Amino acid sequence: MDNIFIDLSAIVIAIAFSYGIFWYKKHKTEIDKKRDEGDALAFSVNMLGKLATMFAYDLKDSSEKGVAKKKEVANKIKVTFADAKLPVPSDAAISGAIEKAVTAMKLADSEEKSDTNAKNG
């Protein structure tokens, strides 16, 4: 009687394992596609800060004012992601990255001015 339960449990385990492998092979392309999309999104988020900083510095000395500069930087970021065929982050993420880049730029400028004043003073 014990051998029957052992044999039956071995058969159930083998069937469950086989079904797991079958399901994975059937859905492998979907799983790989979602993983690749996730990798592309992570890359986009990583690049967002770098692009925001670069474009903010590019427009630093332009004649446009704050809101217009921010819209221009956001537009350049969206165009860059579209050209690279990467997922475009949300408007809120882009806005946050631009704000962070501008804050870092202003902080760097104020430190540079204080260093120059210390050397001259």
Rank of each mutant, 00 (worst) to 15 (best):
D91C: 02
S90N: 04
F81S: 02
G38C: 09
G49A: 03
D115T: 10
K71D: 14
K33N: 02
N46V: 05
K85L: 05
K76N: 15
D58N: 00
I21F: 02
F17I: 05
I6S: 13
S9I: 03
F17Q: 00
K76L: 13
N120D: 09
E64D: 12
D39M: 14
I21E: 06
V45Y: 10
S44V: 09
S18G: 11
K65P: 08
E37N: 13
A40L: 06
A82Y: 05
S90M: 14
E99T: 07
D2P: 00
S44R: 02
M105C: 01
N46I: 08
I6H: 00
D36I: 13
D83L: 13
V67T: 10
K50D: 14
M1N: 14
F55L: 14
P87C: 04
A82K: 15
L41Q: 09
R35N: 09
T80V: 06
M105I: 11
A40T: 00
S95V: 04
A101M: 00
V88Y: 04
S63K: 11
K113W: 03
I31H: 12
L107K: 07
S95N: 07
I77P: 01
K65N: 11
N117I: 02
T53A: 15
D7H: 09
G49F: 05
V67M: 10
A97I: 03
A16M: 08
M105G: 08
G96T: 06
A101D: 02
G66T: 05
S9W: 05
K25M: 11
G66Q: 02
K78D: 01
K34R: 12
L48T: 01
L48K: 02
N117L: 14
D32P: 00
K70G: 05
L51W: 11
T53K: 13
G121D: 15
I4K: 11
T103F: 01
V102A: 03
Y24K: 08
K100M: 05
P87R: 01
R35Y: 00
D91N: 04
N46M: 09
G96F: 03
N3S: 07
E72K: 15
A101E: 00
N120A: 11
K78V: 01
S63L: 14
K34Y: 06
L59P: 00
L86P: 03
Y57V: 15
E30Q: 11
I15A: 05
T80I: 06
R35K: 06
E30A: 01
E37V: 06
K50P: 10
N117K: 15
K70Q: 09
N46T: 10
A104W: 00
